[in-house]
């Protein structure tokens, strides 16, 4: 009995510890968003976005603090956090999804990522076209997506409707390295 079981146990132990080798992390991912409205253009940048790329399961997860977005005008920062995304109640925006037909060995590939985007406490299914590049033992992932403000229950007073676009463009770029580094 012992002889049959031991290899199994060793195998399970190994698989549980090799997990991290298939996971790559980006600690300084960049996410920016743009709102082009008739009255003004608004742009904000976050350079501290975290993301994990799981090669084995072809999964990706992204998490960012709303407070880390930097605006050109400081009152915009205040309005964004206080009145729109309410970052004291919903401090983070997250994304979790699957990279469809991802091949970890390719040097460059453009794939669809299908997953759940959570902003302002509201989760939406979205699909994002993404380019993934492999450089030595690093992965770079970038692309852009469009989201509608009203999908995430963000209320804009009518007087400011011409200052904020209904559709926001989100751009992202992540550089992943293996977990141990």
């Amino acid at each position: 009995m012992n002889k049959i079981l031991t290899p199994f146990l060793v195998f399970f132990l190994l698989t549980s510890f090799t997990e991290d080798k298939n996971q790559f992390i980006a600690r300084q991912g960049q996410v920016s968003f743009f709102s082009y409205a008739s009255m003004e253009n608004i742009e904000a940048k976050n350079n501290q976005v975290l993301s994990i790329l799981d090669l084995k399961n072809k999964k990706i997860a992204i998490s960012m603090l709303m407070r880390a977005f930097v605006f050109k005008k400081d009152l915009m920062y205040e309005h964004f956090n206080e009145s729109y995304v309410e970052s004291d109640i919903y401090p983070k925006a997250t994304f979790e999804g699957d990279i469809i037909n991802f091949d970890a060995s390719l040097k460059e590939q453009t794939k669809m990522i299908k997953g759940k985007l959570t902003i302002h406490g509201i989760t939406k299914e979205i699909e994002i076209k993404t380019t993934i590049e492999k450089k030595e033992n690093k992965y770079v992932l970038f692309g852009e997506a469009n989201v509608f403000v009203k999908d995430f229950d963000i209320k804009i007073p009518p007087i400011l409707a011409s200052n904020i676009a209904q559709m926001i463009t989100i751009k992202f770029r992540f550089q992943y390295q293996s977990y141990e580094e």
Partner: peptide, 19 residues
């Protein structure tokens, strides 16, 4: 144990990474 490590939510893992 093995399953729980494998299935450990990636987002949960990211939460521990925030400085």
């Amino acid at each position: 144990v093995n399953c729980s490590i494998n299935a450990q939510d990636l987002l949960e893992k990211l939460n521990q990474e925030f400085p």
